[in-house]
């Protein structure tokens, strides 16, 4: 019995320490983003490349998924609203649920599956190949050169792609509001404007920024925890991805709690 409590206590302590460690590390990276010396020309080159890989290369697939998934979602939601006689709430549902909740969530899932997994593997491979040691040997700060551009890219990409996804969803809304409710575009836009809550949009954008920060930072951190053996790569990647998804859920819950107050 004592051993059970010991184990539980040990695990809880370890979990707390790991969480505190991640938060402290996040703070260091966050502060570094605001330091001018971080932005060397080498770092800026990495940043531009990262934005290209994360935001531009994904565009065709992202748009396709947004259109298909968005149209499906909007169609289902509008049909349900009509069935339950909740047509008056169409604007609130569009802005409060679809634009500020589902668009960021869909975006972060797609980017996590594509880019976070890639970043996690890239870092683990660099660690195994001793390339991280190379950077340190040549006095290249790993936070400045590897972390900061990827984290900034994460923030920029999620904010931009989430906004794009919201636009796609709202455009789908025009089509479905006409098909399901026989609503004209002028009425649709008026409903949207009335239902738009500035604070909700700010919360959604801040949430996107936080998503972007953590879905790049956590994979890097776990990637860098790989040892010098090839077998440590899959372990580092799977641990990193599990933690990224946990972080997404925690951020989502925290944003909902923030909205309540």
């Amino acid at each position: 019995m004592i051993s059970f409590w010991e184990n539980l206590g040990h695990r809880a302590t370890m979990l707390f320490l790991a969480f505190a460690d991640t938060i402290a590390f996040s703070g260091r990276v966050f502060l570094r983003i605001f330091q001018r010396k971080t932005y060397s020309s080498a770092m800026r080159e990495v940043l531009v490349n990262q934005i290209y890989f994360t935001s531009v290369q994904i565009l065709p697939v992202f748009l396709l998924v947004s259109i298909v998934f968005g149209s499906l979602l909007i169609g289902i939601v509008f049909t349900l609203l009509k069935q339950f006689g909740l047509t008056d709430f169409i604007g609130h549902v569009l802005m409060g649920l679809i634009v500020t909740e589902l668009a960021p969530f869909l975006t972060v899932l797609l980017i996590t599956l594509r880019s976070s997994a890639a970043i996690n593997t890239e870092m683990a491979v660099m660690k195994v190949n001793r390339e991280i040691k190379t950077l340190e040997t040549f006095r290249i700060d790993v936070i400045d050169y590897l972390l900061a551009p990827r984290v900034i890219n994460g923030i920029i990409s999620i904010v931009l792609l989430s906004s794009l996804c919201s636009i796609v969803l709202l455009v789908s809304g025009i089509l479905f509001s006409r098909l399901i409710f026989g609503m004209g575009m002028d009425v649709y836009s008026k409903i949207l404007l009335i239902s738009t809550n500035f604070s909700d949009i700010v919360i959604a954008l801040v949430k996107c920024g936080i998503f972007g920060f953590f879905i790049t930072l956590i994979p890097i951190r776990f990637g860098l925890r790989a040892s010098h053996e090839l077998t440590s790569i899959p372990v580092a990647v799977s641990r990193g991805m599990v933690n990224v998804f946990s972080a997404i859920l925690i951020i989502e819950v925290l944003s909902l709690v923030t909205k309540l107050f």
């Binding site: 060397s40 020309s41 660099m126 190949n129 390339e131 040691k133 950077l135 040549f138 006095r139 290249i140």
Partner: peptide, 21 residues
């Protein structure tokens, strides 16, 4: 023990030092 960065081309490995420092 100090290998090249494998996700960068040869010339970028060389250019990195001046661009960073």
């Amino acid at each position: 023990d100090v290998p090249l960065i494998s996700n960068q081309e040869a010339y970028l490995n060389i250019a990195l030092i001046k661009a960073y420092h």
